[in-house]
């Protein structure tokens, strides 16, 4: 190669790199200012006592030791865990069950069914909240009117310490069922029909074809759904903020709500940051193990 063509080549390379940086710069700077700097800032203020009124005071691991002995924090995380343990498997099973059923029938009603089940997904969480608050209304709501038909007395739902969290989980299921059902359905459709036919010829029944052929083949989708819904369930915020604000008597005060309350209502910013870093670490460990499970596939 002559020096001239090398120079020409390197000039082209230089222009390409320059174009690339120009293309990436806006997004990268945005992420830097609005995500990366904030997370560093969160880590820093988690070592300070800061209430916006007096000066920031460096207290080392003070907030962290306070966190470990803060019963209310661990109780709120316990509620998050309860929500996750009930919500994630229920959503997983019902959406998979519906997807398998829809896949198994051929009917002109199929597209109506799919649209109808996906419809609640188009409703925003605040509108879902106002609507279900109306439906759950203790004295005059639709759900109690329906239960009364069967002789069941009025239930307090959101007003009861025992029922509030379940009532919220039901709304979460209502919103997200269709979307996860569609994810499963598109995974099922990817499985070649010949696999099922071969199994049928070999005399496998419906359950066996599902258990030994379909389920293993849609495993990547199953894991994807488990990860995303678990992470989302740790961060359920809007519904609870609008419907119960963590009440009654803290029955629905999940982890994120406790953090929000500490940070924005009590302005205990340093401690709020410590708690939010703890949440980050929990989710990080969780997604680390999950992604390991995925990559082992």
């Amino acid at each position: 190669m002559t020096t001239k063509s090398v120079r020409k080549l390197s000039r082209r390379k230089f222009i390409e790199a320059l174009t690339a940086y120009c293309f990436i710069a806006p997004d990268f700077l945005g992420l830097l200012i609005f995500v990366i700097i904030p997370i560093i800032y969160a880590i820093i203020i988690s070592f300070y006592h800061w209430d916006l009124i007096s000066e920031k005071v460096f207290i080392g691991f003070g907030n962290y030791s306070r966190m470990f002995s803060d019963e209310n924090w661990w109780n709120s995380l316990g509620r998050t865990l309860k929500l996750t343990i009930i919500y994630v498997p229920t959503l997983f099973c019902t959406s998979l069950f519906l997807a398998v059923l829809i896949d198994s029938v051929k009917s002109r009603l199929n597209s109506f069914i799919k649209t109808a089940i996906l419809m609640p997904f188009a409703i925003t969480s605040v509108i879902a909240s106002t609507l279900w608050m109306f439906l759950y209304n203790e004295k005059r709501g639709f759900i109690n009117a329906f239960l009364n038909l069967f002789g069941i007395p009025d239930q307090p739902f959101l007003g009861s310490q025992d029922q509030a969290l379940f009532s919220i989980i039901l709304v979460l299921l209502w919103i997200n069922l269709g979307y996860n059902m569609l994810l499963f359905l598109s995974a099922i459709k990817e499985v070649p029909a010949s696999y099922f036919e071969a199994a049928m010829i070999d005399g496998a029944n419906r359950w066996q074809t599902f258990r030994y052929i379909m389920f293993p083949l849609i495993k990547p989708t199953s894991i994807f759904i488990l990860i995303t819904t678990t992470i989302a369930s740790f961060q359920v915020m809007d519904l609870i903020m609008v419907m119960t604000k963590g009440g009654p008597f803290k029955a629905t005060e999940v982890g994120v709500l406790y953090i929000f309350d500490k940070s924005f209502n009590l302005l205990d910013l340093g401690y709020g940051s410590t708690l939010s870093i703890c949440l980050f670490v929990i989710l990080f460990i969780f997604s680390f193990f999950q992604s390991k499970a995925v990559s082992e596939e």
Binding site: D27, F28, L31, I33, F34, V35, I36, I37, P38, I39, Y41, A42, I45, F234, Q235, M237, V256, I259, F260, S263, F264, L269, G272, S273, S276, I277, L279, F280, L283, F284, S287
Partner: peptide, 19 residues
Amino acid sequence: IISTLLIPSMTILVPLFMI
């Protein structure tokens, strides 16, 4: 860029407001 996906929105809410 990809690693920013791991950050929960709640964790950066206060700093984001400060910024």
